[in-house]
Nucleic acid binder design. Structure first.
Lengths: 192, 192
DNA sequence: CGTTACCTACCTAGTAGTAGGTAGCCTGTC
DNA sequence: GACAGGCTACCTACTACTAGGTAGGTAACG
């Protein structure tokens, strides 16, 4: 049991799901206060400003993602396995509605109106993600598991784009399986 | 010269670019008023509520898109040409920053917090788009121009997802060429 | 004379954020 | 062991400002 209060974690978790639903301007301190069961002013005690809150939130998200990639490097058997574990993770998040969208993908869409500090964190996540995917595609091509018609970086970027666009399509059609269909189609082509 | 005032068109055009930048909750009547050079209250004369404004805007956007697809059906030589004209259109919009994001893709990301009327319009656009893309892929497969490893619908959805995700990546990296790289990678695979 | 397009002036509700207070809990010191 | 000081986590009550929206007036025009 940690000696740190769980309230700030509750605030972060709540803010995360509110951002996933409607982005940076889609929620307020009042919304969080109601869900967490705390007064608006008390949130300012934990996070002086909204920028502090969201910057912290994205920073943690980024660290979690990085840890997830490291975990996949250790556990997954080969590049193909790594990719399908990655999309499988998202399929689960979308299907059980626990996190039906990537926080950073959502924030990225409103990047021009985001406070600079938040925008910077979002950009860093995209770099982390595209670097990891590129390394996976490179390894897959080297080992001969993937047959790529384009440079690994281009394939990785296209794959990443399809994942983010897939989240969007699944949201619009309110159909988690659509995400699976799209990512499966992307994975299929890697060895044909 | 049309006998309709141009002010309401100015308002719509302004709102469109504001939505492209930051979504539904990312702009206000005050923002529009300042750009168009009119008072806030005067916008309510043309569009009683924000929902009216955005619903109208998305409806027109949807009609424009539909007209664009019809145009491509008439002018483009074959399915491959249609797809590359489609992505070429977006490449231009992104490169000259005239409309660096699809209005409906952006609104779709905040779908859960969107007013129902607007959400409905957005969903209709996605249907229009995925139906057209599916028909293009079907025709391409029939004629033998495309060699698909998955059903046309799955390929169309993956293509559409990559286009939307590509806009996101181009925005994050502030690099219009990234969109071209991603879509080129998608097009390449259709005949390999 | 009615309609259109705009205006000023306003309203209510909500926004992020602040000031200042209180209750509980450690911790160091006599 | 008692107690003072400081710290954390919360509170009520507020500020300044912005949001979308309204009431009612005016000037131009067919």
């Amino acid at each position: 049991m940690t000696n740190l209060s769980t309230t700030s974690d509750d605030i972060l978790a709540c803010a995360r799901s509110l951002i996933i639903a409607g982005g940076y301007n889609g929620f307020s301190y009042a919304d969080i206060a109601e869900v967490v069961g705390i007064r608006k002013a008390s949130i300012h005690h934990h996070f002086p400003s909204k920028v502090d809150l969201v910057r912290t939130l994205v920073f943690r998200y980024r660290e979690e993602a990085r840890a997830g990639f490291a975990e996949l490097e250790r556990t997954a058997a080969d590049p193909r396995d790594q990719l399908s574990s990655y999309v499988g993770y998202w399929e689960k998040c979308i299907a059980d509605a626990s996190a039906p969208f990537c926080v950073c993908a959502l924030l990225a869409s409103e990047l021009p109106v985001l406070p600079a500090e938040v925008a910077g964190e979002v950009r860093l996540h995209f770099e982390t993600l595209s670097e990891w995917l590129t390394s996976v595609f490179e390894r897959g091509a080297e080992v001969g598991i993937f047959r790529l018609s384009n440079p690994p970086q281009a394939e990785a970027e296209a794959f990443m784009a399809a994942v983010h666009g897939g989240m969007l399509s699944a949201r619009v059609h309110d159909d988690p399986k659509l995400f699976g269909m799209i990512t499966a189609s992307m994975l299929d082509r890697l060895s044909n």
